[in-house]
Amino acid sequence: MQKKGMYSVEDILQIQQVSKKYWSKQAVRDISFTLGPGKIIGLLGSNGSGKTTIMKMIAGLAQPTSGKIAVYGNPVGVETKSLISFMPDQPLTESWMTVGDALRFYSDFFADFDQAKAERMLDFMKLSLADKVRSLSKGMSERLQLTLALSRKASLYLLDEPLGGVDPVARTRILNALVEFYEEDSSILISTHLVSDIERIFDEVIMVKNGEMVMHGNVEELRLQHGKSMDELFREVFAEC
């Protein structure tokens, strides 16, 4: 898959004035931002703030009502699906599958799937190939979804609430995996409402409230400017909720 514009420093993700209106609700309102390569970015917002909708639109699961989204210059479509690895809040696996089947599904459809890496990560997450998806606990299922998403060599990783519903030990393990996993030519966008555990691994944060972007900046600079942690800033922004 060619990435357009290799001759210039192309942004991995460009979102221009994107809005999304469902039947009766304005879920996302005029959001614009760009993401460069080699970054880990936090998409911070409370539940229902629109961050999941934004991720779905980037991943191609939903269409913006207006505005444009491009990945390495390519508008969202079949090609961008091979550039993006999405871990949604719903399982990607089907209930008839075993863990091994799930890996096979991924390797069948994604050319950038790294089987060896997946198996290593499964080991790390304490999952076995023969486990039936149906019999996995919520925590184990989340670890499987994360393994699948991270075992691809994608340009943009979208993780929707990877830390939700996961015990603190597993959380540390996941954070470790994310830091180990970082590549200079790809970026990771992580949406979450649990900020304090994870803010140390973010380069930048984008805060979304009621579908609107209220802040986008470099984390260290924000700390310097405000003398506050991202967790505190987050709480301030969402104080009225």
Partner: peptide, 12 residues
Amino acid sequence: KSYGRKLIPVKT
């Protein structure tokens, strides 16, 4: 309705 199916890069 399947997330897995909708995310794979195949022609519609």
